[in-house]
Design a protein around this nucleic acid. Sequence first.
DNA 1: AGAATAGTGTCTCTCAGACAGTATAAT
DNA 2: ATTATACTGTCTGAGAGACACTATTCT
Lengths: 261, 261
Amino acid sequence: MGDMTISHPISAAVFLMAKQLTEKQFLKNYNVHDFDVPLVTVDMAIFTVKEGKLQVLVVKRAQHPAKGKWALPGGFVDMTLDKTLNDTAYRKLKEKTGVETSYLEQVESFGGAGRDPRGWSVTVAYLALISSDDIVLSKDESSEDVTWVAIEDEGEKVELAFDHDAVLKACHGRLKGKVQYTSLPVNLLPADFTLTELQKTFEIILDKSVEKKSFRRRILDADILEETGEMKTGSNRPAKLYRVKPEGESYFFARSLEGPR
Amino acid sequence: MGDMTISHPISAAVFLMAKQLTEKQFLKNYNVHDFDVPLVTVDMAIFTVKEGKLQVLVVKRAQHPAKGKWALPGGFVDMTLDKTLNDTAYRKLKEKTGVETSYLEQVESFGGAGRDPRGWSVTVAYLALISSDDIVLSKDESSEDVTWVAIEDEGEKVELAFDHDAVLKACHGRLKGKVQYTSLPVNLLPADFTLTELQKTFEIILDKSVEKKSFRRRILDADILEETGEMKTGSNRPAKLYRVKPEGESYFFARSLEGPR
DNA sequence: AGAATAGTGTCTCTCAGACAGTATAAT
DNA sequence: ATTATACTGTCTGAGAGACACTATTCT
């Protein structure tokens, strides 16, 4: 394809013409390719709790750049498929995990000249939470491998391509922060769960223990769960099963968990 | 970060070649303009408190598209001037207000096919807080007018171009949300201020009154301010002047302001 | 002196932490 | 019966709200 780029940032001709045109005429003459523009991607930190650990999904890149390196799943906005950035995020989530519905939240955008060797680029980072039950990992032509890696608190283990260490850190930070004063972790569990399971999930993310009575009081008083009527057996005393009430997935508490005195 | 998706937008030729190339060769052949890419802009909600009201800076667009309409200040990332998105934001803030340092926070990115008539576009929204003392408004060739408009809570008055109503709403929402549990409003005041002035600022943003004693206890116990030693005279009893300690500008409280019982 | 604004004393209320106690299952 | 897990009772303490009180300046 011929390179018709005019150097940064706007051609003088186009600029001057713009002045006396109607909007319609202006748009007719407007061509994105007259500019140097950043690349735009969406990258995701898809978290789950598995084997008692908070884990994040990474893919091994099958293609340049950073071929063979681990990275957060993501990709270019597809201007034909995606009406919004959220669409891109949902599409990527679906492609990698098969999951349709789960908690999705935009975290932060990273942009700069140095973060991708292809040039000035912007990535919009998303955070996704899914139950490890729901997942069937699947790779596509862009990744030669997909796997979960545990987040060992302070210093994630696998080294990631591009600036994905920073992206992951931002997403992990957001998750940890919000767990202090929201009910977010309900989105990491299957539809029905016990209070002990929920508490364990909080503890894993916060990487500290939570006092049982306070926890139950807090969650139950918030009135965001309802009993399913079923019990979970298998351990010793059976435990009540709960499910999230509609709208209960992102309750905000007025007070943060404070941790031990 | 991006994998090379085959479908639109990449040319099949480039894609096939990529497969057996080294990264160096790949990058040599890589050209941003082979793709249809979104436009990327930064837009800002610059807030200040003036005349007892929370106000936001808007500019009247001097050029297409949306010529003659009010909009949030912003513009394209300048790939030569800006090393990161934050640089773009700082540059825009400086251009419009002359302010160098103030509180700046990335809020959310908005992307979609319909939000700008020039095509699929992404804007990274930033929130800035400045003291109304520091400002000298200045327009440039992109705006024919610049002004402050009061945010009349629930339903901002001036109608904004593009989807800037939504962008402003997101920024305003973030501000209001964080004022519940942070010390953010200190960034809206001049360097030295009294506790009453600070309280008033909180009240203006929250659009509700705050109890005096609780407020002073909360702020003082947080240990984020220091006395300047000076007093502010002019009203009746003089008031102690305080300034923000280093690192005190974004203190997080463990409990939210709760409002009247 | 009276008005206005700055600043304090102190009570109540809510909710998190602590921790011991009770309940119900598996073995 | 013992053990393991689920669940509760109830005390303490931190910090927010309420509101009356004192302090210092102005007119």
